[in-house]
Design a protein around this nucleic acid. Structure first.
Length: 337
DNA sequence: AACTACGTCAACCGCATGGCC
DNA sequence: TGGCCATGCGGTTGACGTAGT
């Protein structure tokens, strides 16, 4: 980023910080604490605005920051959960993620959103291959895609549907210690007051948030997620069960989807478009898009009708954000442990 | 090798909020 | 009570690195 402006008002410096400036800022914080940002400039210590100094400290110089390391699966899960709960309250969300700043969380979420928007916008033929997407999204140390070699065609031509039995459905609680997180304690309390509408015994039972507008177990094809998203299902995200294919969690996505719609093949699973769903139309505002939006809507519908073009692998989890969640019940802020 | 698409990150901006006078 | 100032927050932008074509 090139330094912008700088010509006005007594040479306020903008742009990247130098090591020398960082050191001056550290020294100021050592002496005065993380405050009196404006005095840094007024005293002539740095040609930076107080806002800039504060931002630099908060985002880069503050101790115990997790700089240069990707969001872990757990962190991603927390962000997704809290975003669903609080909205874009990044500062608030970041307080649940030690070492992460609101800027980190915001950037993380923004990346997810952009990816989804692009995926929904771009023709699938122009999409990156799964391996590429993974490397880009999952970073350098992430788990490999569950099935980079399993081509879309392979998946879509899986020979024998082999539905999961109910007793094969894995238990979320054993895989994701969700209850350990403070916000989830809060969440559980909410859920207990307002049980999700999914039927007991359904694979979705307890997974879908209250008032989920899922048309039903949907007919998208679900393969192992190629991204690094380790986000686990949680009560407020209607489709969050789809995150479960992340190999980093050693979870087979098949366990989280409608077993009757599953097709297994080569360690991956996808949903066969359910016959009974083929006649259904998505609810108005499906994916937050107008029904006239052929570009996007067409893809989704084609998947529902069995057009062999869309897998869950192709659909980023963030598309679930387009589901309009019912307004959360007024909740007191969760207390940190 | 050049180009393109994409992800990541740092830093800016405008607005909101709260404290002080 | 209203204005000023410092700080906090969320949105946005643009540089840069990486990987695929």
């Amino acid at each position: 980023m090139h330094p912008r402006g700088g010509g006005d008002r007594a040479a306020v410096r903008k742009g990247p910080w130098t090591a020398e400036e960082d050191e001056v800022l550290r020294q100021h914080v050592r002496e005065h604490g993380p405050r009196e940002w404006s005095s840094i400039r007024s005293k002539g210590l740095l040609p930076r605005t107080g806002k800039s100094c504060r931002l630099r400290w908060v985002n880069k110089l503050r101790p115990n920051l997790k700089t240069g390391c990707k969001f872990s699966a757990e962190e991603e899960r927390v962000v997704i959960e809290l975003q669903a709960q609080f909205g874009n309250k990044w500062a608030r969300i970041s307080t649940y993620l030690p070492g992460r700043t609101d800027n980190d969380v915001k950037n993380f979420w923004s990346t997810r959103q952009k990816r989804l928007a692009r995926m929904l916008r771009a023709p699938l033929s122009r999409r990156r291959p799964a391996a590429a997407r993974h490397s880009a999204t999952g970073g350098t140390g992430g788990a490999p895609s569950s099935s980079p070699a399993a081509s879309r065609d392979q998946l879509l031509r899986a020979p024998e549907p082999e539905p999961l039995r109910q007793d094969q459905v894995p238990c979320f609680g054993t895989m994701i210690p969700f209850q350990e997180t403070p916000m989830n304690q809060h969440h559980i309390g909410e859920s207990s007051q307002e049980p999700p509408p999914t039927a007991v015994g359904s694979p979705f039972h307890g997974l879908l948030g209250h008032g989920s507008i899922l048309p039903s177990p949907i007919g998208f094809a679900a393969a192992g997620c190629s991204s690094s998203y380790g986000a686990a299902p949680e009560a407020h995200h209607p489709l969050s069960f789809l995150y479960a294919g992340d190999p980093a969690l050693m979870v087979d996505a098949a366990g989280f989807v409608d077993s009757s719609a599953l097709i297994h093949g080569g360690g991956v699973a996808y949903l066969e478009p359910k016959r009974e769903l083929e006649e259904q139309q998505p609810p108005a505002g499906f994916f937050g898009l107008g029904e006239d939006d052929d570009d996007v809507y067409g893809h989704i519908v084609s998947a529902r009708r069995g057009a062999p073009d869309v897998r869950f692998d192709d659909l980023a989890p963030e598309m679930f954000d387009f589901f309009e969640l019912p307004p959360s019940p007024p909740s007191s802020p969760p207390t940190r442990p």
